[in-house]
Write a protein that binds this DNA or RNA. Structure first.
Lengths: 338, 338
DNA sequence: AATTTATGCTAAAAGCTTTTAGCAGAAAAA
DNA sequence: TTTTTCTGCTAAAAGCTTTTAGCATAAATT
C-alpha cells in the first residue's frame, strides 16, 4: 500500500486510512491538541506506511513561514561562496530549512529579479555575501520585511554581519613567525583599496613595530613574484620572513625565492592567507597559512538568520570570527602531517 | 498607498482597491477569462500601485508546480559546482524558476534529507551534479515522481545527462599541438579509474598513434612534476609537447621543465585541461588549455529540466557539449590577449 | 441525582491563488 | 416580441495543511 507513484499522499489519505478526521490526523502527527496515545500511534504508523509527507507549500502558506531562505552572492567563480553556502545549507538542513542560491553576477537587474523571486516565495530571510568585504550590495536590502544577514560583505551600520577576524588572523601569522625566532618580517599584500588588505596590514604593522613594511599590490602570484625581486634587488638587510596577504601571493613569493636560490624556510619563512588548499598544499614546501573558516562563517550566518526569522533577538553589528593557523612546512615548524 | 510594510498585499487587496471581484482581478492580471480592456488596465495599475506580487506558495499549491528546482551536489570546495549552479540559476531566473542548492558532502544521510526536503517542497525537478563523472549518486534518484537531469555525473542508462565532450576536448588539444608542428606529444594525466581521464587518454592515443604514451597518476602538481622528471631522466628521445589532463598537472609540468632548464614553448609546448583561470593565468608562461564550458553545461541542464517539468520531451541519453581551446602562451602561438 | 470537569474527537475556517460554472444584462438574430 | 448569442463580471471550489471552537461521552465532583 506504499505510494504507487500516481500522486502524493495527503493528510486526507492518512485520515481515511486511519479512520479518523483530518484534524485528528494532524494533531496526532504533530503532537498538538488532545489525542489518545493509541490513536496517535496508529495514525503515525499509517502515515509511515503510506509514505505521507506534508506538503511544504500548504504548510508555508498557512504558517507564513516557508522554512526557506535565500542566499544572494555576486561571486560566480568563487572559492569563497561555495564553502560558505555549504556551511549555511549544512547547518540549516537539520532544522528543515532549505537554501535558494542566487548568483547575481554583480548585475543589478539580476539581483533585483532574484530578490523579488525570493520575496514572492516568502523566504524567511536572506543572507547576502560578496567577494569583497567593502562592496555595497547591488540591490536595496535595507527596508525588507524579512531579516537580512551579511556575511563576508558589508551591510548597513546596525545590521547583523559576520566577517573573518582579519586582525586576529594577521596577528596569528606574525606571532607564529616571531615564536620561530624571525625578526625581520615583510608583508606583501593586495590592493590598498581592499578593506581586508588594510586591516591585515595594520595588524601586522602594530605587531611588528619599527622596520615593518607593508607592500600593497595585486591579489596575484605575479605581484608576489615582483615584490620579492624588488626587495632582494635593493640594498640593505633582507627579510627573514614574509607574511603574504593571500595564498596566491605567497605562491608567487615562493617561486621568486626559489629563483633567487633563497632557501625556504631556512633563509626565509613564508606564511599565506586563505588556506586555499589547492594552492597551499601544492607549493614547495607546502604553505603555512591562515584559514578564514568560511564554512564556520556559513554556520553562524545560517544560525543567525534562523533565530531572526523566529523573532528571536540577535546582537546587531559586526561579529568577527577567529581565523585559524594551519601549519605546514614553509616556516620550518616541526614537520607534521596535515 | 504603497505597501506600508505591515503585511504583504494579496489579490484581495487589489480586488477591493479596483472595485472588482477576486476572480476578475486574477483574470485581469493573468490575461485569462473575459475582461474588459478598461477594467484590465485599471486592475493592473492598482496592483502596481499597491505593490501586489502573487504569493508563490499559494500559486504553487494550486498549480502543483512550485517553479523551483533542486540542485544536488556532492562537491563542497568545488570549482566545478558553482559555475554550473550559476549557469543553471542564470538561465532559469528569467523563467521565474529558482534553485535550491543542496550540498551533500557525499554523505548519504544528508543527501536523503535534502532529497526529502526537495520533494516536500514540490520542486519541479532535480539536477544532480558531482565532481566525478563516474560516481553513483549517494541516494536513490531513479524512481522519483519528478524529472532528474544529470550533469557532470553519471545517471542510469536512459536518463538525461550532460557531459563535457572529453574526447573532442582532447582532440582539440592534440590538433592544436600538431598544427604548431609538434610531433612527439606526451600525455600526463590523473588516475586511470577516472572515466574522464581514460576518455581523454584514449582520444589522445587515437590521434597520435604510434609512439604515443599516456602516463596515469594523480590530479596534482606533484604528479606533473614527478612525471616530467621521470621522462627527462630516462634515455631516448624527449617529447616536444606535453598534453596534461588538468591545469594543476600542467602547472607541475611547467615548474619541472623550468627546473630542468627546458624552454617553454620553444623546446616543449604545454597544454592543460580545465581552464581554471586562477591556475592557467598564473603559470609562466600563461597556459593554453581546454575549457569545459561549465556554465554552458549549467544552461543546458537548466533548460532540460525546465522542458521536462513542463512535460515536453527531451532526448534521453548522454549529450556531450563541446569544449573550447583557450590559447595563451604555453604553445608558442602568436601572442594574443586573452 | 445533578452539576462540573476532563477527554477524545471533529467541523469549519484560514492562508492565497486560479479555475470552473454560471448569472445578469446587452446585443444580435429569429 | 421572443429567443439566442455574446460580454463582463462573480461566487464558489479546489489545492493541503494547521488551528480554533465546540460537541458528545465519560469521569469526577457537589
Amino acid at each position: 500500500m506504499k505510494n504507487t507513484g500516481d500522486r502524493r499522499r495527503t493528510i486526507y489519505d492518512v485520515a481515511k486510512a486511519a479512520g479518523v478526521s483530518i484534524s485528528t490526523a494532524s494533531n496526532a502527527l504533530n503532537g498538538t491538541g488532545r489525542t489518545n496515545a493509541e490513536t496517535r500511534e496508529r495514525v503515525r504508523r499509517v502515515a509511515e506506511e503510506i509514505g505521507f509527507r506534508p506538503n511544504a507549500l500548504a504548510r508555508g502558506l498557512l504558517s507564513k513561514r516557508s522554512h526557506a531562505i535565500g542566499m544572494l552572492t555576486n561571486d560566480t567563480y568563487g572559492r569563497l561562496t561555495l564553502p560558505m553556502a555549504a556551511g549555511v545549507s549544512e547547518v540549516l538542513v537539520d532544522h528543515g530549512v532549505s537554501v535558494f542560491l542566487c548568483a547575481t553576477n554583480n548585475d543589478p537587474r539580476l539581483a533585483q529579479l532574484h530578490l523579488e523571486a525570493l520575496l514572492d516565495r516568502q523566504v524567511d530571510g536572506i543572507i547576502f555575501t560578496a567577494t569583497r568585504l567593502d562592496l555595497a550590495p547591488p540591490v536595496q536590502l535595507s527596508r525588507l520585511p524579512i531579516p537580512v544577514v551579511y556575511v563576508f560583505a558589508e551591510g548597513p551600520a546596525d545590521s547583523v554581519t559576520f566577517f573573518p577576524d582579519d586582525e586576529q588572523g594577521a596577528r596569528l601569522a606574525v606571532d607564529h613567525l616571531k615564536e620561530l625566532g624571525r625578526s625581520r618580517i615583510l608583508h606583501i599584500t593586495g590592493p590598498r583599496d581592499y578593506l581586508a588588505a588594510r586591516i591585515r596590514a595594520q595588524s601586522y604593522l602594530d605587531a611588528c613595530g619599527d622596520g615593518a613594511e607593508a607592500m600593497f599590490g595585486e591579489w596575484s602570484e605575479e605581484w608576489g613574484h615582483e615584490a620579492v625581486q624588488t626587495v632582494f634587488a635593493r640594498p640593505g638587510p633582507k627579510p627573514d620572513a614574509i607574511f603574504c596577504g593571500s595564498d596566491e601571493i605567497a605562491r608567487g613569493v615562493i617561486d621568486a625565492l626559489r629563483d633567487l636560490n633563497v632557501e625556504i624556510p631556512t633563509d626565509v619563512a613564508v606564511v599565506g592567507f586563505d588556506n586555499w588548499e589547492v594552492v597551499a598544499r601544492q607549493t614547495r614546501p607546502p604553505l603555512t597559512t591562515i584559514d578564514m573558516e568560511l564554512k564556520e562563517l556559513g554556520h553562524r550566518a545560517g544560525l543567525a538568520i534562523l533565530s531572526l526569522s523566529k523573532g528571536e533577538p540577535v546582537p546587531a553589528g559586526i561579529t568577527r570570527l577567529p581565523c585559524r593557523l594551519v601549519v605546514r612546512q614553509s616556516c620550518g615548524s616541526p614537520l607534521q602531517s596535515d
